[in-house]
Design a protein around this nucleic acid. Structure first.
Lengths: 341, 341
DNA sequence: TACATAATTGAAAGCGCTTTGGATGCCACT
DNA sequence: AGTGGCATCCAAAGCGCTTTCAATTATGTA
């Protein structure tokens, strides 16, 4: 069933039926009723590809999903998607997801953009000096970046959390508790949030005349194994750190396993603060020793970005171009005063 | 840059350029080279919407993502998606994800199908007597179901794991260890896998003349909280079960927390077997007491389903319509002989 | 040399929708 | 009666691609 058939059925022109369907004013209310009725009976749905071709819009947000054989799936990605979806469903938008090798993201994003399949783009996993920014700017398609790109002029639409502030505050808390030996368990070095979090730690330490030793910094994928490995490494250092900052509760999961295996007590021998993306699976309060965290909901960010993206496509009012969300610092049992030596 | 412009640039007809691009044989090799060269230089990409409209194919797989405010995101979904993506990226396919309220899945699936945006459908979260099957059959669009629908004629293309066999085997193992008081911590009652797993347990018990008490069965969303609650309930029963079967490592996570909180020892006071979807975040061997599991990789299932779907769309050879994967039973430390009373 | 055959290329007709630029009829108003 | 304005409706022209059908040229054969 297509427009033509439907209009023949009704004895109307395609024009009128189309207008009736799309809420144009120049169609008789009685006629519109008749059309709507027929739609219900026949179950007619406009062909989106045709609509897209004719209008240039198709109610969809495009995004690139990094994937590859052996590339571990990322809970953060799923959680963010849930947020996007929650908002999208309200506006009858859908997503077009282009899976791409992590090394091929720029090209994949470009393919997606010029495929004509999407109205707007969402971009994540930002890096320092991210090459995608220049490409996006040249595209004349709305987009919102999740995160920022360290080293690039912040003149693009983004939503980010204050990573530097979060880790600055967390470090200050640990300093106040008397800790002096710190370690940072971070995400991959090239990612923007990792850079900023590191800076936050470093500047808080610097205020006390402390520095973060190279050996007390790990950059790795945010998996629990990597957390385990990194922590094992830290624990073997001659000057074992007593305060750990951790970029994700996923990393913390492994890190804590290492602490337990070493027979140490979290919150006493070792204090740890992790960043909490509010993943349903990893509630900091559910850890055997509840975790002190810097918190910001990834899902809420997804909802907000979807709002902005969809709003822009629908030309529904202006949105702020840049948003920086503060994180909360929530103290639980994984942090305590520095142990007396 | 579109086909018309490109062909004018080359002094060729759109026909020839189109054929050159799509690998048709009736075009001079020299001409093809010239076209390919021009594509490289101009960065031309065909408009997918137009391609779709003209051919009816667009290289995309559609799926419905259940979501709603407050609806917790599902790690299983993300992991499966990673599998789909891994295969899709090899064939330059993408996904169209339609977010939908969990109560609205049938309608959402239909909308997706007739939107003309997708070539094939993937369907998951199957229920007993699933109403989507009839709809899918009427659709004349390829689809593959992940799971099955208990109570419906199995005459549709599916990939499922042997849920009944898995839980039958797991139960047998526990029986051999002398356990007689069982509890089953299951997924939502209406879901197909939950039905079959329950049946597996019941039939293994029946062979020994045992039955599964109503109070020893929980049906809930597969979250760690629910696991905690269910286990707390089980532990308060007058005849406390000693053997627990658990539909997911996510549930097990909470369940084990409850066991620990009750001061009981896993693998001694309580034996537990969980089904392991091979989620990167929840490795059974990484639990403080490594988990005995029935194992089947969700991601591998995703890869396989994408293969079948894409293969069908591309008309690349016949695929088996029905696949039933056996699970592995892997014994670790969370199971032990029944404690002597 | 003449003619069948194969190799290349093009013109034009869609795919299903939106939208521009009229038509048409009806009314009030002068 | 003549005119302008309004409410409705429609024919047809795209959107950018594929594909059918036909034309043209090159090649081979008798």
């Amino acid at each position: 069933m297509n427009l033509k058939q439907l209009s023949e059925l009704l004895g109307l022109s395609q024009t009128t039926v189309s207008r009736a369907l799309n809420g144009y004013p120049e169609v008789n209310e009685a006629t519109r009723e008749r059309v709507l009725q027929a739609v219900k009976e026949t179950g007619y749905r406009p062909n989106k590809a045709a609509q897209r071709l004719a209008t240039g819009k198709a109610g969809s947000i495009g995004l690139v999903m990094p994937t590859a054989p052996g590339h571990q799936s990322d809970v953060h990605f799923g959680e963010f998607l849930a947020g996007l979806g929650e908002e999208a469903v309200r506006h009858d938008f859908h997503f077009v997801i282009m899976p791409a090798d992590p090394d091929d993201e720029v090209a994949a994003l470009r393919r997606l953009a010029i495929s004509g399949n999407v109205d707007a783009l969402f971009v994540a996993y930002m890096r320092g000096h991210d090459p995608r920014l220049a490409m996006l700017k040249s595209l004349s398609m709305p987009y919102v970046v999740h995160g920022r790109s360290f080293g690039s002029e912040p003149d693009y639409p983004y939503l980010d959390i204050d990573n530097e502030g979060a880790f600055y505050d967390a470090t200050r808390l640990l300093l106040q508790l008397g800790h002096t030996r710190f370690a940072l368990m971070n995400g991959p070095m090239h990612l923007d949030f990792a850079i900023r979090r590191k800076n936050g730690v470093i500047s808080a330490l610097a205020e006390r005349g402390l520095a973060l030793d190279e050996g007390c910094m790990s950059h790795a994928l945010m998996t629990d194994e990597q957390g385990l490995l990194a922590m094992e490494h830290f624990l073997q250092l001659p000057e074992r750190p007593t305060a750990i900052l951790c970029s994700s509760t996923v990393l913390a999961l492994g890190a804590i396993r290492a602490v337990n295996q070493a027979g140490l007590r979290l919150g006493e021998d070792i204090s740890l603060i992790a960043h909490d993306d509010v993943l349903p699976l990893l509630k900091p309060e559910s850890f055997s020793v509840p975790l002190t965290t810097t918190r910001s909901s990834l899902r809420a960010a997804g909802v907000r970005i979807a709002q902005r993206l969809i709003g822009t496509v629908k030309q529904a009012g202006p949105f702020p171009d840049q948003e920086l969300w503060k994180t909360e610092l929530i103290v639980r049992a994984s942090t305590g005063p520095v142990p007396q030596a």
